[in-house]
């Protein structure tokens, strides 16, 4: 498989606060993979993702996308990647079709807008304003805005946070289709079921470093090699997360 992302000893220290957000992470991602980051709040997931997307400059280390560093290749790389941010606010009275058309206009080669709307089940809402959409519909619009430029890598920063279970399921189906089409997905999430469902490879980040990585099943087996769980159920990624980080995602220390 072709390697599309290579990260080596990536570090980020914020100048103003001298806080180390990322303390040296290295990983590689292959084309068509879904690679996920999980970790507690402030662990460095979003900072790593923003450095990968060229939104923040690393303090040290290297990032290569498609074998190219950001320095000197920004224009080429921007045409091949896209991102969905945590923030899902935009012009309230912008129509769905207008939002997708706006982002299509930035790419020399873009997917037909009607086709994208159909792909994301947004055809009935094409003339609705963004403020009239549900959270799930709005998040699908933001994904459609990202996908319309035919990106090879899509970065998704906690894309289903705040969505109801049905909307999350719909969103996962769409991401799975994109993955099947050969698009590489890089995802951060707080939801264990989400990364378990979507990700081929996972990295668990805590205090700016990767403390565990591999496929979800490999991580579970490695972490719970011994039958330490007394409950009559199989270990899940949530168990792994709690054991490795000591954090309960629903509210602080476990």
């Amino acid at each position: 498989m072709e390697q599309v992302i290579a990260v080596k000893d990536l570090k980020k220290v914020y100048d103003r606060t001298q806080k180390t957000a990322v303390a040296g992470v290295s990983f590689e991602v292959e084309r068509g993979q879904c690679f996920g980051f999980i970790g507690p709040n402030g662990a460095g997931k979003s900072t790593t993702l923003e450095m990968l997307q060229g939104l923040k400059k690393p303090s040290a280390g290297s990032i290569e996308l498609f074998g190219m560093p950001w320095q000197g290749n920004e224009k080429k790389l921007r045409r091949r990647i896209a991102g969905v941010l945590q923030e899902n606010e935009m012009y309230a009275r912008l129509k769905v079709v207008e939002a997708v058309r706006l982002f299509a206009s930035f790419y020399p080669d873009y997917q037909a807008i009607d086709e994208v709307l159909e792909q994301f089940n947004l055809t009935p809402q094409r003339n609705n304003w963004l403020c009239e959409l549900s959270g799930g519909q709005r998040q699908r619009v933001f994904l459609a805005m990202a996908v319309v430029g035919k990106p090879e890598i899509i970065f998704l920063d906690e894309p289903t946070t705040g969505l109801d279970p049905t909307s999350r399921q719909e969103f996962w189906e769409i991401l799975n289709k994109l993955k099947a089409d050969g698009v590489t997905l890089i995802l951060t999430s707080h939801y264990m079921d989400e990364v378990e469902f979507l990700c081929d490879t996972l990295a668990i980040i805590d205090k700016g470093t990767i403390i565990e990585s591999g496929s979800p099943q490999d991580i579970i087996h490695r972490t719970f090699a011994e039958p330490v769980i007394k409950e009559p159920r199989k270990a899940t990624l949530n168990d792994v997360f709690l054991k490795l980080t000591g954090f309960d995602l629903s509210g602080g220390m476990a």
Binding site: Y91, L94, R101, A104, S105, E115, K150
Partner: peptide, 27 residues
């Protein structure tokens, strides 16, 4: 991915429309 030939969209025009529309849609 699509094989449809897409019309040429001009980014500055789209960005201009983006900034014009809210004024006509927001009383």
């Amino acid at each position: 991915m699509s094989h449809t030939i897409s019309p040429k969209l001009y980014p500055f025009w789209q960005l201009m429309l983006l900034n014009v529309r809210p004024f006509f849609r927001e009383p």
